[in-house]
């Protein structure tokens, strides 16, 4: 199989996120980037598929701080090739990212081989302008499934049968003709651990292909205004009163958040 995993670095929310002086972007001082959780699962799912059906796993990522570590780690886990797209000054929005990635994929495979499966994280925490997978599905005109939590390959590699998460444990099974693109929510197994020694070995033996990214102008449709941090949670808001009164307040809160 020709498995392509599109990776996206996102700000690490463990570090303090501050809004920069312009009020419209993140302050770079404490910013660190990491791979989003769904992307970790996308890598794992790709490796599981490779182990089961053979083929190659190609990683494509836009350059960002610490992206090399991520790519070498994935190579150490068993991915075959890593492509890094350079040239973006700040993380572009999804439409621009999608076009850069699509151009890269077309540069390698044109047309897409029939047994191609493109995987990426189902969502990213900075997807202000939408998720990556649907943009690419549109660009390549191939079938799409989102929130995927399991992938089977059938018909000798012509068809993918995916399990999608709905809610409360309910899932649905869908079938797609390959080539296709999947937004992975979780892999069938938790992402594997790769020891540091193997990552270091990969840094010595493997290579990351750098390519200049084709970055189009961002579409003009959105105007980003102010960015702000929510008020600090700090301490709980205490609900006072007798049990009945407290119950009413809680019900109010639950209703507000549509939990009941």
């Amino acid at each position: 199989m020709n498995i392509v995993v599109l990776l996206k670095m996102v700000p690490d929310t463990v570090e303090e996120l501050n809004v920069g002086a312009d009020g419209r972007s993140l302050d770079a001082e404490f910013l660190r980037y990491k791979l989003g959780d769904p992307d970790e699962h996308a890598i794992e799912q790709a490796l599981l598929l490779k182990e089961k059906h053979g083929g190659t796993v190609t990683l494509v990522a836009l350059d960002a701080p610490e992206v090399d570590d991520v790519l070498f780690t994935a190579l150490a886990k068993g991915a075959d090739r890593a492509i890094k797209l350079t040239g973006a000054e700040s993380p572009p929005g999804t439409p621009v990212l999608a076009q850069a990635v699509a151009a890269c994929v077309r540069g390698v495979w044109n047309p897409l081989p029939a047994d191609t499966l493109i995987l990426c994280g189902s969502y990213a925490i900075d997807d202000l302008e939408g998720e990556l997978a649907p943009w690419l599905a549109t660009a390549f005109e191939i079938p799409l499934a989102m929130v995927v939590a399991g992938v089977q390959i059938e018909d000798g590699g012509r068809k993918a049968v995916v399990t999608r998460e709905f809610f409360g444990g309910l899932r649905g099974e869908f079938e797609l003709d390959l080539p296709a693109i999947l937004g992975i929510q979780s892999a069938e197994k938790p992402p594997r651990y790769v020891p540091i020694a193997k990552v270091r070995a990969a840094m010595k033996s493997a290579r990351i292909d750098s390519q200049a990214a084709e970055l189009p102008e961002p579409p003009a449709g959105l105007e980003l205004g102010r960015m702000a941090k929510p008020e600090a949670a700090g301490h709980a808001q205490m609900l006072e009163g007798d049990p009945d009164k407290v119950a009413d307040q809680i019900i109010e809160v639950l209703a507000q958040q549509s939990l009941i």
């Binding site: 996120l17 202000l128 003009a220 702000a228």
Partner: peptide
């Protein structure tokens, strides 16, 4: 819009 897992809120308008 709630970004970065709720760490930042962004105000956006459409052109």
């Amino acid at each position: 819009s709630q970004l970065f897992g709720g760490k930042v809120f962004a105000e956006v308008r459409m052109a």
